[in-house]
Design a protein around this nucleic acid. Structure first.
Length: 477
RNA sequence: GUCCCCAUCGUCUAGUCAGGUCUAGGACACUGGAUUUUCAUUCCAGCGACCGGGGUUCGAAUCCCCGUGGGGACGCCA
């Protein structure tokens, strides 16, 4: 079975050599059971940068919070990554030279680095926890935010080199916990230690981490390590209202797009555009082109508002551009799930209907409703459609005239159907198109849909005649 | 409260670094028109923005300052 994601041809095979200049990026999620669009974007941008530079994309699982991190949560994350076509070069299931790739299995490494800090006098124990010790003159100040007296340190300002924002200078002014009193290591510490130990060269993450980065740089310096290049991505804001997008917002979870049958490439293309653009105006493009064009200068500084309409538009564009075979291959399961088709549905008929419906479809979510009547001989007639068709002319007379003519059509193809209706119209002094709306309504119960002649052809003579008779009988009753 | 980041159509953005080619370009959405048997197709058109105030300059969307607005961080969460 083929994956819906086209594994991009533009990805050049990585040469196995370890080059000191090789880019190594990582995505370090904490599996919570959901794959948030913001996390997905961070993963995607790291992946793009790795592929663009022919570097390595590392997946490291920050599962230090044992209460929240379950196997199911991990599976949800990995499934989401795969759905978006984001393959990792090192990490769970694939291994690598810098493992283990679960933080829960890296305790020895943390202990080792902690000892280095302790030995250097840059960490101390207090209240059973271990704190990172800043260097500088100490003083006590009342902190309004914490509403308490706090010990502060006059430190040298830290300048963070950020590939998107330039130099960002900030002071860290309080010692902070690197190992909690329960023995767990804190985020700032493990994050930096892992990045050092895994030889990470570029840290690409959300802007919400920017303020924390000065702390991270303090740790790098205390450990005598060279900080990586940072790249802080703009946040994704709610469609309307205040603040960044959260789990509860419509459209914020990748799972939602999976359920709603969005095309993964379309979702991925849309997420690429959330805070990045190629500067040449192109929006919908193959992933190979995106990889080629992706780089830090194209990344936006300002937070972007999420727009579901644009997401849908891109999805529709992808759907229409699908090769008809792929469209059918993807539509089958959707229709089966919606009980529009089952094992008894003829393969050829299904294919014929889908082939003429693709250009009318907007998304897979709405496909069952669009083609449902074509697979159900007891389809309901849409009252609105009926009202419109019966507004003018004598549709029932036209239908009665049409039926015997259609019975004689041979071969059953668009050309002869067209010709037969044309001849009939001429004979009766009507226009050809006086027959079209009622024919469509009679065979599908709808006022719109695929091209009528193509639809009649696809339905086949037997179905068309039967459906028209049934419709005519219903009108008499 | 303190610190940090940011600021172009309703939304996503191009242009800002290297000031003039910008009466500010594109996309989504919206509105109108054309075509079509229908339509959720296609085509065309319209609507619509440089946050405010100072400064520098012959010239500012672009550089500087001050406001204002938006976002973020300040956990023994990650």
């Amino acid at each position: 079975m083929r994956s819906p994601i086209d594994l991009c041809p533009a990805v050049i095979q990585h040469c196995g050599m370890t080059d000191s200049s090789e880019v190594r990026v990582r995505f370090a999620p904490s599996p919570t059971g959901f794959f948030h669009i913001g996390s997905a974007r961070t993963a995607l941008f790291n992946w793009l940068y790795a592929r663009h530079t022919n570097g390595k994309f590392v997946l490291r699982v920050e599962d230090t919070d044992s209460a929240r991190n379950t196997p199911e949560a991990l599976a949800a994350l990995l499934d989401g990554m795969r759905w978006l076509g984001l393959d990792w070069d090192e990490g769970p299931e694939v291994g690598g030279d810098y493992g283990p790739y679960f933080q829960s299995e890296r305790q020895d490494i943390y202990a080792e680095y902690l000892q280095k800090l302790l030995d250097a006098g840059r960490a101390y124990e207090k209240d059973d926890a271990i704190f990172f010790k800043l260097e500088g003159e100490r003083y006590v100040e009342f902190d309004k935010y914490k509403n308490a007296e706090v010990e502060k340190v006059r430190t040298e300002p830290i300048t963070v080199k950020d590939a998107i924002r330039g130099d960002v200078t900030r002071n860290v002014e309080t010692d902070f916990v690197i190992r909690r009193s329960n023995g767990d290591y804190g985020f700032h510490f493990v994050n930096v230690v892992d990045d050092i130990a895994m030889n990470i060269t570029h840290v690409i993450r959300g802007e919400d981490h920017l303020s924390n980065t000065a702390r991270h740089v303090e740790i790098y310096q205390a450990l005598g390590a060279q900080p990586p290049v940072f790249a802080h991505l703009p946040l994704i804001l709610k469609t309307d209202g205040k603040g960044k997008m959260s789990k509860r917002d419509q459209g914020s979870l990748i799972e939602e797009y999976v359920q709603r049958k969005f095309i993964p490439e379309a979702v991925r293309n849309f997420i690429c555009l959330l805070g990045w653009n190629p500067k040449d105006g192109s929006e919908i493009m193959p992933i190979g082109d995106i990889i080629e064009k992706f780089d830090f200068p194209g990344i936006q500084k300002e937070a972007a508002r999420f727009d579901e309409k644009k997401m849908s538009h891109i999805n529709t564009e992808y759907l229409r551009a699908l090769p008809v075979e792929t469209f059918c291959w993807m539509a089958g399961p959707v229709l089966a799930e919606a009980k529009v088709i089952d094992e008894s549905t003829e393969e050829d008929y299904l294919h014929a209907i889908l082939a003429i419906s693709q250009e009318k479809a907007r998304d897979f979510e709405g496909l069952p409703e669009l083609v449902g009547p074509l697979f159900n001989e007891d389809f309901a007639v849409d009252p609105e459609a009926q009202k419109r068709v019966f507004k003018k002319g004598e549709p029932l007379t036209r239908l009665a005239e049409l039926l015997p003519v259609l019975e004689q059509v041979d071969p059953w193809c668009e050309n002869s159907l067209d010709q037969a209706i044309l001849d009939l119209a001429e004979k009766k002094g009507q226009r050809k198109f006086d027959y079209f709306p009622i024919a469509r309504l009679a065979v599908s119960g709808q006022a719109g849909g695929p091209d009528l002649l193509a639809l009649l052809r696809a339905l086949g003579k037997e179905r068309v005649i039967a459906r028209m008779r049934r419709f005519a009988d219903m009108q008499e009753a």
